[in-house]
Design a protein around this nucleic acid. Structure first.
Lengths: 193, 193
DNA sequence: TGAAAGTATGGTCAAATGACCTCTTTTTGA
DNA sequence: TCAAAAAGAGGTCATTTGACCATACTTTCA
């Protein structure tokens, strides 16, 4: 049904082929243009989303129209506003495509039944949630303790490929610094090397 | 066994009395002095911890010996280094008592068996995890988008009682600002009022 | 109870940061 | 393909922030 996703499940889980088929068969495929939104502030998040190709971002916009990025979701990543999805309340964030992307969507009803019917799939989902918790705690610690330059360096170390894919202003919006500061950091690093 | 905790479970869950007893009976009670550690960097986190009274904090210490606070755990709160606990690997953080405190501890083996034997307890635990995820996402958004003054104000709004219980330097260590900046903010707010 | 540790505040100064601006280059999409 | 939009870089300046210091006050605990 969705061969890329089925391969992903084969390599990342020990699900039986029939269960892989079942999960895959309930997904709806969408193609997104650059800058296309799949969730806007005020809407309710109704799907779990898997990224087959491309890149999405979750972000919020301040009163002064500056953007703040909570998450990048590249190929083989998952994304959703979990609070809006869980409680079915209006979302405070946006999710949109940075690159032309292909995604799979499951409705909450479908995904919930998959989780309860397939315990191994549930535990795989729990693993992904756990990884997110670990990652976000580390990110918070970095925000608390590291300088903008250290944050940038750790970002580059952690996501080497993103540097070529993302506009710098989005990296700045993820690190919580101004584009000016990021430019300065990169400038001084160039001089040093 | 631990009446305060049993009351907590009665009011926050729909567990049967026999299950409340079972959960409670597996807890080990500890009394902590001010500044006493229950987890230090490099140790493995072996317990889930419920705070009966007092206040704990989870924090890390930088090379320059400055502290950065990830979480406050007041009475009726839970705390542990979830990554160290899940994987049984050395922790990167410390957990210690800010005030003289009384806590309950469950070993991982005991807690795991409670979760798998009592589905309602598992779903209660999931709720607490979910609340933490929501809260931490909001905190990250605040770190990205708000000024130190706005962060302080939202902290006071969110945890009005903490202002009287916590030294200001810990509030600064939680907000990611210097104590000097926090003092300045408070000073200008005094002048305004 | 009294010495020691911890805490809050404020002065001063240097450094870091962001806002606003322009200019050039690159990318996008009709 | 080409006009329009977006992106990156950098200059300037005002503001914010932190480091370091000293002082006064409070809390702790032996």
């Amino acid at each position: 049904m969705h061969p890329h996703f089925e391969t992903y499940l084969q390599t990342h889980t020990t699900l039986l082929p029939e269960n892989i088929q079942r999960v895959s068969s309930m997904a709806i495929r969408h193609t997104l243009r650059r800058n296309e939104f799949i969730l806007s502030t005020g809407e309710i998040c109704r799907h779990k989303v898997f990224v087959i190709s491309g890149m999405l971002r979750m972000f919020s916009t301040s009163a002064d129209s500056s953007e703040h990025i909570l998450q990048f979701a590249p190929e083989n990543g998952w994304t959703l506003d979990v609070e809006s999805y869980d409680k079915q309340i209006p979302s405070l964030v946006n999710i949109s495509a940075i690159e032309p992307s292909v995604i799979l969507c499951w409705t909450k009803a479908d995904f919930t039944s998959l989780l309860s019917d397939i315990p191994q799939f549930k535990s795989f989902a729990d693993q992904i949630v756990a990884r997110n918790i670990y990652y976000n705690r580390q990110r918070m610690l970095t925000m608390l303790s590291a300088t903008p330059e250290e944050r940038y360096e750790s970002f580059v170390r952690e996501f080497p490929g993103y540097l070529l894919r993302l506009p710098l202003r989005m990296i700045a919006a993820y690190l919580g610094i101004s584009i000016k500061t990021l430019t300065r950091i990169r400038h001084t690093q160039l001089l040093r090397s």
